[in-house]
Design a protein around this nucleic acid. Structure first.
Lengths: 155, 155
DNA sequence: CTCCTCATGTCAACTATGTTGACTTGAGGT
DNA sequence: ACCTCAAGTCAACATAGTTGACATGAGGAG
């Protein structure tokens, strides 16, 4: 047993640093993995994955969003959205109904089951973040937010 | 023109926040994108992508690494490594030679061209990080590192 | 010398996630 | 009746990964 660890590739700091910022670069990589690892595991147990979670996440925060707006926010083509979206509808994690006035658009909402899965998956990610913030305190957390905002706004 | 923006999906903060930590969660997502966006664009112009960069990055920091060790660090199967690795060898961004004693292993090294591409791609990422660190100062940067270490160690 | 091990290499089949392009459907407005 | 627009669907393709099976070639053990 124990051929290669499940978290293969996550051997932080096993590489020489060629630049001062290499450590930060690797921290971003491993940070993303660290935040999403448990959530992805949970989603896999539900037969879902990251794209499904992204859909659920957005719809949870924009009830009655139309397909076109969802496509815009996710940044993928409607064809790419099609399969995961249909799976979520089939599994009754999402409902779609036509708008009363704007009858051309379909409006998406989470069902209770969908809301539960979205919450649990996101909770796994938030749990990791909360633990990290708790460990460094308010000042450190504020620094993290400042840095991440600067990076994120690099569009 | 201007059908949908190239940075589609990167409309930060267009979503309602259901939890206090939702903003942080989204910052991680957009932060990762923000850091890798330019580097991915540069790599695409070279006919390469993220997996190629990961290989170059690791080999740059572990000259004479063997295939098996590379597989371990990257956390992918040898079959998955095969194609991008062969492309890099064909394009002479990497060289492989057999070890003098350990003749069973092949040792990988970057060529000058490979080193240049690795540096430029990583520079795009480091540039974004440096700008963010500069904007928040040493205290904020230290906070960021503390938080990211806590998250990354969540294996 | 033969046999076993071990690192590497390769072939095939499959899954998942995405892309473009082309076309259909169905509702609304003119 | 005609046009537009949101949505849905089909096909072909690219990329990045998986497992399984098998080949090759060097070293070590007998």
């Amino acid at each position: 047993m124990a051929k290669t660890s499940q978290t293969a590739g996550l051997h932080r700091a096993s590489l020489a640093k060629l630049h001062e910022l290499d450590a930060a670069l690797e921290l971003m990589y491993y940070g993303w993995r660290g935040m999403t690892l448990e959530a992805d595991g949970y989603l896999a147990k539900q037969g879902l994955s990251r794209p499904h979670h992204r859909i659920l996440y957005v719809v949870a925060r924009r009830p009655d969003i139309a397909i076109g707006a969802l496509i815009e926010i996710l940044g993928i083509s409607k064809q790419a959205l099609n399969r995961p979206l249909n799976l979520l509808l089939e599994r009754k994690l999402l409902t779609s109904k036509r708008s009363p006035e704007q009858h051309r658009s379909k409006l998406l909402r989470l069902t209770e089951a969908g809301r539960r899965i979205e919450q649990r998956a996101s909770d796994h990610e938030r749990k990791v973040l909360r633990a990290a913030f708790d460990r460094v305190g308010a000042t450190g957390a504020a620094g993290w937010v400042g840095v991440m905002e600067a990076i994120a706004d690099n569009n």
